[in-house]
Amino acid sequence: AEKTAENAHKAADDADTAAENAVTLVEEAKKAGEKTDMAARNAHAAVTAAEKVAGDLKDSTLNSIRDHEGIAEAVGKVVIGATITTYDGEQFQIAVSSGSSFTITRDGHMLTNKHVVEEYLKLQRARDGKDDFKRKYNATLEEQIWVFVNKEKHDAELIHVSDKTDYAILRVNRRFAKPFRLKAVPERLLDAEVRAVGFPGAATTPFTDREGRLWEFSKNKCHSDVAEVFNDRELQYVMTAGRISQVTEDTATKVKWILHNAGIARGSSGGPLVLQDATVLGVNT
């Protein structure tokens, strides 16, 4: 009987230990459950925050080709020229060539074609020409890039010229509420409806024999502000419709080209080719 009692006592102790272990396990499970709940709540908050950021981003960038006011505030007519300062401090501005550009950041980075800024690069290199000019007219000539956004003239800085293909990046000192978004992948573009945006006003005809005109300075043929050269129509963007008929890759340069029939003129060079949601596929050349 003593033995049996001892066994029973031991069994009771074991049962107590098992119960204690069970309580510990339940508590641990509860804690794990709470942690899981917290993780789920955190994950949900993170998703909501990410959705808000994505939503804000969409609201703060162009998202439709029907947003004409937004587009007018995000495209720019690029004018290459020079400022001439005479010995007595009088200033003149001369336009040499023009093209199009569009903004891709809120702080004024604008994309254009490399060939649109070609005349600027030429003037930058023309040291002898500038020295001769100074001797001949007692005046300095300084190359300049201006960008007209919604008819307002801004000085632009050349930030980058691509060594791979025909694009360049400018920067103007202006805030942009809704820049364009760029398309990262060229999938399913064949037959897509597109719009070409730009300032088609002939890039060169008003400046025939432009280098001659530039180096032959006469006050009465110059403007004090280059804005006087352009009328309202030339400072308003034009949007043309078309479809993509081919997407090819140049075998030598590996550059991808989009063939489309949205009409562009010389001055539209540097403008964006956009889809319906205003995302930019590329730069018109």
């Binding site: 980075h109 293909t165 694009y167 990046i169 398309k183 550059v255 063939l259 949205a262 562009i264 596929l281």
Partner: peptide, 24 residues
Amino acid sequence: YHAIFFGQFRGDIDKHAPGVVWVP
């Protein structure tokens, strides 16, 4: 008419225009 597709120059553009927004 031709356009140069931008996606292929993503790294280059990002470097010189920080803040540019890309969409898939």
